[in-house]
Design a protein around this nucleic acid. Structure first.
Lengths: 247, 247
DNA sequence: TTTCCTGTGTTCGGTAACGTACAGACGTCA
DNA sequence: TGACGTCTGTACGTTACCGAACACAGGAAA
C-alpha cells in the first residue's frame, strides 16, 4: 500500500505557523533513509537538516576503543542537525539511521536563513533543542544508575512512540550497540520480557504485546523525557492551522 | 588580600562585544555562592542567569530513588540558566554550588531582552549551549564505558580548569555524589592517585601535584570536551582578528 | 531441498562496582 | 586539653555486567 508522504508527518514542521511552513515547503526534499546509513560523521560538515517522518535516527557517540552509545534519538518529533543553527556547524557525535524510513531534508543555508529571521521557527527549534538536551541528560543518568533491562524497556518505549506500528525491525545486536552494552545482555533481558509475555521476537523483529508491562519495568527516565517533550513542544495552534491547510 | 571582582572574569561576558557588554554591565549583580547552595530546583522558575567567576556550579539530576549524578559543570567559562533563553524556562535538573566562590547574576527579563535582539549575544549563548550539550553527551558515554578512576581524573581536571589554584576544597563524599558513585569508590581511586604521587588530600582538600599524570590516567572524555569548548567559544573579537589575518 | 549466513541462546570464569558495617584519624570547638 | 563530629580507610559478601567461546536455529537464496 502506498502511503502518501507529507512534511507534516514531522511534528516540528507541522508545528510551524503557516507562513513559515509555506516559505520552506518548496525546498523540503523527501529522502529514503536506509538502516545503518550515516547522516553525518563526527566533525563532518552537515549539508542538510533532516526532519524524519517514518525513519528514526540515532545520535551516537563512538569512543576511541570502538565502544559506543546512543546519546539521543530523533524521530518524527524532531530534527537532525541542530549544530547548524546552534552555530557549531558540527558535533563530535554521529547520526545513524536506526529504523529505516523517510525524512525530509532542507539545505543548510535555508535553515539558517529561516532561523536568522528570529521568528517562530527560531523559538520552536530552540525549544526542541532543549528537549533534546533533556533526553541526553536523562541518558547520562540512566547509564549510571539503571539496569540493562530497565534501559531496554525505556528504549523500546521511546522507539515505539516514533513508529506507527507495534513492531520494530532490528536485531538484538543493533539494540545492544545503541545502549552500549553486550549483545548477550540484550538477549537475556529480552528473553525475560518475552517469557513475561510483554514482547515477542524473532530474527530481527520485535513485536510489543503488552506496552503497559514495559512501562512498569522501565525506569522513570522514559516518563521524564516524554513529559518534558510534551511540555516544551506542544504548540496546538500552529499545528491545527497547518492541518487545516493540508486538509 | 582583597581580590577585585569583575564581570570580565567570566569568559562568556568577556567575549561579548563592548556595546553588548556595556548594556548589561550595570545590571550585573555580584553574589557570593556558598558550597551546597541550590540555585534552582527541578521545574522551578529561574529568576536569574548566573555567570560564575570563581564559583563552580554543578548541573545535577536526582532520581526518585535519591541517587544522583552530575550531567555537566559550569564555571567561569559559562552561564547557569540556559533554559531562560532556550524557551523552556526551567529544566528537570537542579543546579548546586560545587565550589564556593562568586558569580554575577542578571535578571531573567534582561537576559531575554538581550537575547531577543538576535545579535552577537544570542549567537554566543547558543554556541555555549552547544558546548554544554557536548559536555552532557560525553558524560553519558563516560558513565557507560569508563572506570571510576578514569572518571575521577577527568572530573578533577575539569574542575581544575575552572579554579585559579591547584587545590580543590571538597570531600570525597561530595565528589562521589557528583560522579554518582559510592564514597568508598572515590576513596579507593583517590588512594591510588595519591600513592602514585599525582594528588595529595586531607579532610576536604585535594591538591593536584602532577597534572600530567591525571591526564594520562583520565579517559579521552576530558580532552574531547576541552577541544570542543575551545572550538566553539574562542572569543568573538579574537575570531574576527584571526579571520582578518587569515584573509 | 539443501546450503549458508546471520541472528539468538547459553555457558563459563572474571571483575568492577555495590551495600553494609565499622574502625580510625583529623580538626574544630568547647 | 579533651571531646565530639566529620571525614577517610578497610573489609567483607553480593551482584550486574563483561569477554570469550560455541551450539543451535531461522530464513533467504541457490
Amino acid at each position: 500500500m502506498a502511503i502518501p508522504h507529507s512534511p507534516l508527518q514531522n511534528k516540528l514542521l507541522a508545528a510551524l505557523p503557516p507562513a513559515e511552513f509555506a516559505r520552506l515547503s518548496g525546498d523540503l526534499e523527501l529522502v529514503p533513509l536506509a538502516l545503518g546509513e550515516v547522516l553525518y560523521e563526527p566533525g563532518g560538515q552537515l549539508q542538510h537538516a533532516v526532519f524524519p517522518t517514518t525513519a528514526i535516527v540515532s545520535l551516537h557517540y563512538v569512543l576511541e576503543s570502538g565502544a559506543s552509545a546512543e546519546v539521543a534519538g530523533v524521530g518524527n518529533e524532531g530534527v537532525v542537525g541542530i549544530a547548524l543553527f546552534m552555530g557549531g556547524d558540527t558535533t563530535p557525535s554521529s547520526a545513524v539511521v536506526q529504523t529505516a524510513g523517510h525524512a525530509y531534508r532542507l539545505p543548510r543555508r535555508l535553515l539558517k536563513q529561516e532561523f536568522d529571521r528570529a521568528g517562530p521557527t527560531l523559538h520552536l527549534l530552540l525549544r526542541y533543542t532543549q528537549a533534546l538536551i533533556t533526553q541526553t541528560t536523562q541518558t547520562a543518568v540512566c547509564n549510571r544508575h539503571h539496569s540493562v533491562e530497565q534501559q531496554l524497556c525505556r528504549w523500546l518505549l521511546m522507539t515505539l512512540d516514533r513508529i506507527p506500528s507495534g513492531e520494530l525491525v532490528m536485531t538484538q545486536e543493533l539494540v545492544a550497540s545503541m545502549l552500549g552494552v553486550r549483545r548477550e545482555g540484550i538477549t537475556e533481558a529480552a528473553g525475560n520480557l518475552q517469557r513475561a509475555g510483554l514482547i515477542r521476537y524473532r530474527r530481527g523483529h520485535i513485536a510489543v504485546l503488552r506496552r503497559a508491562g514495559l512501562e512498569t519495568r522501565s525506569c522513570e527516565c522514559y516518563d521524564a523525557v516524554k513529559k518534558e517533550f510534551s511540555r516544551l513542544l506542544t504548540d496546538v495552534r500552529g499545528r491545527q492551522e497547518n492541518l487545516a491547510i493540508a486538509g
